[in-house]
Design a protein around this nucleic acid. Structure first.
Lengths: 249, 249
DNA sequence: AAATCACAAAGTGAGTACACTTTAGAAGGT
DNA sequence: ACCTTCTAAAGTGTACTCACTTTGTGATTT
């Protein structure tokens, strides 16, 4: 933490504007959003170690702002599930447990499954085609893409699929969920035997959607997403290793 | 708003403690939690009208605190989906639209369905029995209970059922969802033709759970929860009427 | 020597201050 | 009469301040 100084989020913020012919420093006005994004990114990557106490003044100085926006951001992140607050003690980073990993994936599977069923009855052929196109475009750089890019493409495919449900609440919930899962999804993708596995399953899901096969597709989605408890344990273990040792294995 | 003064949340807060043989005023220390709860309750009941601008100073004075804890609470409530924030303008209360009602119910159905499936394989017979007992105890005061009590019992049954999944993330997500749905659920329950309908469906769900009939029970849960678009529209309309006219119809 | 108490340092929690933004209303021009 | 512009009031956003809580360290007592 202290050895890994965070980037100053304040870059280029002290915008200058003219008022009454004189230039003045303008306040940030949206510090909270930037601070929120910065801290969230840290939390997503577990650059706060699991359960770690978060020091407000330290964080504030590192981000170049006062404690006020930091606290505001932490309050938001609390409801996002990234930090927990204990009265008179402060904020603590989220934990990392195999159960949490498994539970998050199960919840994600539940939402995406339901979204798929809704998509089958609500998405137009054109919309489906657009989603497929976006996916194939991404997946065309299959061989060359780095793992990070693959992960991005995978997540945006699933998000796009969910958007076809026309259910804003599901999309919203899934977004929050994905940000909490992202760290694990990367690890999971990287440790996959062959990348093509995932691609083939996506193809099958697309096919079911085209045929409006709600039941069949729902089963595919569920299976595609859900992690076994053993697998969740493995992912969690790899995650911990990465956090504490920085290893890729 | 201004005509409906909110209850002072600060009751009995200025606790007195002795330090060095002298009594002193002790700070609130957890104002945020109380303010958060107070504002949330207001938001749940739509005592902020849909889309209404929320005045921080007004709210703060009504709650007997400064703007600081109010803003903290609003930041949390933003991620809870109760308020939205626009930079340099402030916070606005959530909207009320038929689509939102429908979407929320669909999401809830998705989560409870998945939780039921998991419960079928994870809940012990004893746990199931405990849940059933709690439900029957509640439902025994079927005839006499007010609508409010019925709504509480209904919600706690569904929560208890979901807890059998042993999936903390689902439970957590459902809690947030239920608080956002509560206003509509009350309306929905009150406008139900006969209360016994709901009871019978609960019985059927319990029966499926006892038989570990995941597929059958899942279908029952989905059907029990999901609102048709038409029904959602009706509930939303009734909701608006209640908010703006205070009518029960 | 171990446990308890006292004290000091660090950190959180809420209130306050002030600068900036927005908005509404009045004055002036077209 | 309508639109524009200026101005003042209201309200938001952030920094700052200070009181209280927690925690760790050292001294005192048993």
């Amino acid at each position: 933490m202290t050895t890994n100084p965070r980037n100053d989020v304040n870059n280029g913020v002290k915008v200058q504007t003219r008022a009454k012919e004189r230039e003045r420093i303008v306040r940030a006005a949206d510090s909270v959003d930037r601070v929120y994004a910065a801290i969230k990114e840290f939390a997503i990557d577990y650059r706060f170690r699991p359960g770690e106490k978060i020091n407000e003044v330290e964080l504030a100085t590192e981000l170049g702002v006062s404690r006020t926006p930091v606290r505001a951001a932490l309050n938001r992140l609390q409801r996002d599930g990234f930090v927990a607050s204990v009265p008179n003690k402060g904020f603590y980073a989220r934990e990392l447990t195999p159960e949490a990993v498994r539970d998050l994936y199960e919840l994600r599977a539940a939402i995406e499954r339901a979204a798929f069923v809704l998509a089958c009855e609500r998405a137009t052929d054109t919309e489906i085609q657009a989603t497929v196109d976006a996916w194939t475009k991404h997946s065309s750089l299959k061989g060359e893409g780095s793992w990070a890019k693959v992960a991005v493409a995978d997540e945006s495919f699933h998000m796009a699929l969910t958007q076809l449900s026309k259910n804003a609440q599901m999309v919203n919930a899934l977004e929050g969920l994905c940000s909490r899962i992202r760290f694990f999804r990367r690890i999971d993708l990287e440790s996959m035997p062959r990348r093509s596995h995932s691609y083939q399953e996506h193809e099958a899901i697309i096919d079911a959607l085209r045929r409006r096969d709600a039941a069949g597709g729902a089963a595919l989605v569920e299976k595609h997403i859900t992690l076994s408890s053993a697998h969740a344990m493995e992912v969690a273990a790899r995650g911990l290793a990465r956090i504490f040792f920085g290893t890729t294995a």
